[in-house]
Design a protein around this nucleic acid. Structure first.
Length: 432
RNA sequence: UCCGGCCUAGCUCAACCGGUAGAGCAUCCGGCUGUUAACCGGAGGGUUGGGGGUUCGAGUCCCUCGGCCGGAGCCA
């Protein structure tokens, strides 16, 4: 008898197989047990009939508790009554372990605090199984997209000196004799260095923000994909973003359809995500918001509710571009026609999922960059190597950062970002 | 940091104006040959988050501490 994974059972109909997994639910009557099995690749029901097996086997099944680890032997049978299309007629099974306590996660609903406290076990539940499979496909698609366009992966450091956009939300750690180091909040500056060496580059890794943000869209540790391309200007950059997001959504729809169905995601909304995406300027966005009754004027930043109001106007991600200079980061390139705005864009996901990408063309002029660093009261010394990039063969270049968990939450249709990552780190939770 | 809210059985929740703390699930025992969060009968299970106060009497009102949830600002 050969060991087979549940996802492969359809190719083994009529065969005797072995399944190594766990009991995630059990129903029984006096003469029949229904054992719900999972093995990490899927879920399947095993049927154990009293009349067809030894009395001892049938009696042993009564001892099984939820999340017992068991190896099951039986014949695969096609069954229209089963959601997966197949069932196993169990002939025998071997208990690997009976849980020493009752499994804490029950069949009825639980509160979020309880579930987050049991995240290490909650991962076994069906919804989490589907979400994290979708996440896996999304990550794969992101990497494929860059590979197909011959981008070079440049892993940027996680420990950094005091360099980044703003110092207020950095996590500090002790770093030997050097004193303080910080956990990265963006790899952008390093990617800017790399794009001058490799042309087209991207990174993908964890990012840390010590923001005291307590909302459904924030984590203190999240995964970000950033890209940076030499000789790319604003328009090239926006095109790249919509190509990336479309590719990721379409590939995920193709490969994770059953998971999205299981999550009851309305996939018709995702099917529409293809280039070109609607674009509106910051000026137009302000006018739109004023028309909708928001108390907002030119120069104000656009908050969460306002983002939702804008994205509600469209059935695809929308790119809001060219924000006022004073509400954006120091390194963004001013619009040559209108120096009060910068060449940047935020991509807002539909259905109120908020900002998934922040992007800009970067300043490539040495003197202008120095001016901006001073204007923002940032220490020039900290940017010595970054300024070097403008001294030696500087060219226009552009890039962006995409928040993975927000993309996962959007594609899966989750209410909260904390289920989009295996072990969420939030303001008040670092356990388990 | 600021503004709201919640904390009652292992879990999810109920308990009117302050008057003997209750249900479903889970657990244990029994029943059931096709169950899909299976169902049916029975049983056990509580210092109502900690501390203090008001009251004849507090799950309920007040103070305080703690934990958590939602949101704002900021961001991906």
């Amino acid at each position: 008898m050969s060991w087979v994974y549940i996802e492969e059972l359809k190719d083994h109909i009529g065969e005797d197989v072995e399944i190594r997994g766990w009991l995630y639910n059990k129903r029984s009557s006096g003469k029949i047990h229904f054992l719900q099995l999972r093995d990490g690749t899927g879920f399947v029901q095993g049927v154990l009939e009293k009349s067809k097996v030894d009395e001892k086997i049938f009696e042993d099944a009564k001892r099984l508790k939820l999340e017992s680890s068991i190896i099951v032997y039986g014949k695969v049978r096609e069954d229209s009554r089963a959601p997966s299309g197949v069932e196993i007629d169990i002939s025998d099974f071997k208990i690997v372990q009976i849980p020493v306590d009752d499994y804490p996660i029950g069949k009825k609903e639980h509160g979020i605090d309880f579930l987050m406290e049991h995240r290490h076990l909650w991962l076994r539940s069906k919804k989490q199984f589907h979400i994290l499979h979708v996440r896996h496909e999304i990550i794969k698609a992101i990497r494929e997209f860059y590979d197909s366009r011959r981008f070079v992966l440049i892993d940027t450091p996680i420990f950094t000196g005091a360099i980044g956009e703003s110092a207020g939300n950095l996590f500090q750690v002790d770093y030997f004799d050097y004193g303080k180091a910080y956990l990265t909040q963006t790899g952008q500056l390093y990617l800017e260095a790399a794009c001058m060496a490799f042309g087209r580059v991207y990174n993908f890794g964890p990012t840390f923000r010590a923001e005291k943000s307590k909302t459904r869209r924030h984590l203190t540790e999240f995964w970000m994909n950033e890209a940076e391309v030499a000789y790319y200007e604003h328009e090239d950059n926006m095109k790249l973003q919509e190509d990336l997001v479309s590719y990721v959504v379409q590939k995920t729809l193709e490969r994770a359809e059953k998971h999205l169905m299981a999550l009851e995601r309305d996939t018709s909304k995702l099917e529409k995500v293809e280039p070109p995406f609607p674009r509106i300027s910051y000026d137009e966005a302000i006018k739109l918001l004023q028309k909708k009754g928001f108390d907002i004027k030119w120069g104000d930043d656009i908050g969460g509710d306002e983002e939702t109001a804008i994205s509600d106007e469209f059935n695809k991600p929308v790119m809001v571009y060219n924000y006022p200079r004073h509400i954006k980061a120091f390194y963004m390139q001013p619009d040559p026609q209108r120096p009060e705005v910068v060449l940047c864009d935020d991509m807002l996901a539909p259905e109120g999922y908020g900002e998934i990408i922040g992007a800009s063309q970067r300043i490539h002029d040495y003197n202008l960059l120095i001016e901006r660093i001073k204007e923002n009261n940032l220490p020039l010394e900290a940017y010595d190597w970054y300024l070097d990039l403008r001294k030696y063969g500087s060219v226009p270049h552009s890039g962006f950062g995409m928040g993975l968990e927000r993309v996962v939450a959007w594609i899966c249709g989750l209410k909260h970002i904390r289920e989009a990552i295996p072990f969420a780190r939030t303001l008040y939770r670092i356990h388990p």
